[in-house]
Write a protein that binds this DNA or RNA. Structure first.
Lengths: 347, 347
DNA sequence: ATGCCGCGTGGGAGCGGTCCCACGGGTCCT
DNA sequence: AGGACCCGTGGGACCGCTCCCACGCGGCAT
């Protein structure tokens, strides 16, 4: 129990209100509101007077007050499952954020960052999000069995995903052309004369992993080569997983002369294992990764990798979400952005 | 009575209000408010009734409405200058964010992410922030000539910085023990029998760079060695800067047998240059970096590096900010957190 | 002139909370 | 018995904005 209430609530300088602007401009509140919201039904004279008053007072609308009546918050949440946050190579995360931020800033929207630590938090999140009345939700790294997106859809919260859960993703989402990227990687290996090309996949319950594997298959088939199951080893996007998978691959097929890894981190594990087995990269075995992350540039030898247009993906996510907020039922759309092969020394 | 019900404003399901809870619980609005805010002046009977009604309706308070009257937003902004966002090794950024998020979540505070692209945006930011009425501001990576913090202080916006601008930083801030970290790195090199130890610094207008350089000096002096100016080369935290600085260092002192680099990225550049000059790491020249970033683990050889307790730094920032919001004038405090030397193969 | 139209415009009525004042009804003291 | 006090309580008055209705006024047709 507090002995006495804090005196002087706090040192806040009371900011000017719309009322103050109206008084100074000699018009009614309605008119000021119209000017601020760009309504056309205001005379030039009033508009100028209001504008002058706004400038003079340094008036900035109070978001809470507006939000209370419009039932909008002009803010969206970016949900990042904690686990993924580590798993995914960092450029992925920060690149997308940068794009999202840029796309949102233009629309005067705020970005709420929500890191989700554990399952318990995750479960309560849907209610939380709809109660906070964010206008929309951006989700990073959804798993195929993720139900949060469905709940958000039920609650009619506009949602856009980074990546999709599976083939017929009903929600709006943005993803890189994983299949195409993988294809171009394998084609590059083929063009380099490699013939026994293995691949280390990601967890196959993730769409990205599936898509990249599919691209690998397509490239081989297009080249008239047979897809051999023992050249395909499942990894988990980690470095240790990459090492382990590479060892397995070498055991099965010691003559392998190239590897396409579904992530750079995996690839770096593979390179380590190759070196441990006395093989040289790329002379004996060529390696290509995916993501063009920091490690790609820094491992020895520098890694050829598939780059995703991260910032553009982020911007696109923002745009899609804004569209959906503007007119719900605009239909959830999926956007696929092209990838690019960055050739370095490993292949 | 209103003539007719509002014509379904939009597809939003109208969430229950405090009024609805009061009606269902058979009490007044004031009582419900008291229960929600944990006031002791409520009878157990009322409290129970209200609690039941809340659960039944799934009531969650409307932040905007509350914010309007309390003049608080229960949200803080995390400001990240865009340039730094690239410059700083990523674990730094994401580690701190994770800590901040954890620290804030406990207090029911929201985290607003604000990336600042260019100078123009930056200039308007102070006004913007105080107008948005965020309760406080967290700033990443301030430069020593940064004036935004000062403006925020003027505007009486509670602020906590990651790192400090200089020696007598007036604002609350959290930083790693950069000097101590550098010292332990150099001591490790000395313990390994190295005697001609060079250092590649960061931009010396940044406090971290200064502090790390100072630690280098102290360690040498403590060991009774002379600090030789030509063993100190200024870098810029980039890889290229590291290469260039290493080349310069080799030119000045070809017999150098160890290098302490002020960042891992710098160190990785140095390693590249050392190898290009035909030297082996660590056999001929030992190298230690700072940050324990991803690249530290992935370059060849794996880099010995100084780790900062990033997540704890984030949590501490959150706590400091919360304190300052709670009672302004609690005095801006600086907190220094210990670092840890992670020994790998490069030294 | 008289009516009608449409454009700007002012301002009342909320949005959903918190704050605080006034009030009923017990307890305890005189 | 009457007064002073305390406790839990209801509800009015906002917080700063948008929405919308009603109104004044000039121009045009009647």
């Amino acid at each position: 129990m507090r002995p006495a209430d804090p005196p002087a609530r706090n040192a806040d300088v009371r900011r000017p209100t719309l009322n103050a602007v109206a008084a100074l401009a000699g018009v009614g509140r309605g008119t000021v509101s119209r000017v601020i919201n760009g309504s056309p039904k205001v005379s030039d004279r009033s508009r100028a007077a209001v504008q002058r008053a706004i400038d003079e007072l340094g008036y900035i609308p109070n978001r809470a007050a507006r939000s209370l009546v419009t039932q909008r918050t002009d803010s969206v949440a970016l949900v990042v499952p904690e686990a993924q946050n580590r798993l995914f190579s960092e450029p992925y995360f920060s690149g997308i954020i940068r794009g999202v931020s840029a796309g949102l800033a233009g629309a005067g929207m705020q970005l709420l960052l929500v890191l989700v630590r554990d399952e318990k938090e995750y479960a309560r999140l849907a209610t939380y999000l709809s109660a906070q009345r964010v206008d929309g939700v951006l989700m990073m790294a959804v798993h195929s069995d993720d139900t949060l997106p469905d709940r958000l859809e039920e609650l009619a919260v506009p949602t856009v995903l980074a990546g999709r859960r599976g083939d017929g993703e009903p929600l709006g989402h943005v993803r890189a052309d994983n299949g195409g990227g993988a294809r171009s990687a394998v084609e590059h290996l083929l063009a380099g004369g490699r013939r026994t090309i293995g691949t280390i996949t990601g967890p196959l319950d993730m769409d990205v992993a599936q898509a990249r594997l599919e691209g690998y298959r397509e490239a081989l088939e297009k080249a008239g080569l047979e897809v051999q199951d023992d050249l395909i080893v499942q990894g988990d996007f980690t470095e240790d997983g990459g090492r382990w998978a590479m060892r397995e691959l070498l055991r099965r097929r010691p003559e392998v002369d190239a590897v396409f890894a579904a992530s750079d981190v995996t690839a770096s594990g593979a390179v380590l294992e190759l070196r441990a087995s006395g093989r040289r990269v790329p002379d004996d075995v060529a390696v290509i990764g995916f993501d063009d992350s920091i490690v790609a540039r820094h491992i020895d030898p520098p890694l050829t990798s598939v780059r995703q247009p991260l910032e553009e993906m982020g911007r696109t996510m923002a745009r899609l979400l804004l569209d959906e907020i503007e007119q719900r039922g605009a239909g959830h759309r999926g956007v696929v952005l092209p990838t690019e092969l960055v050739v370095r020394e490993s292949a």
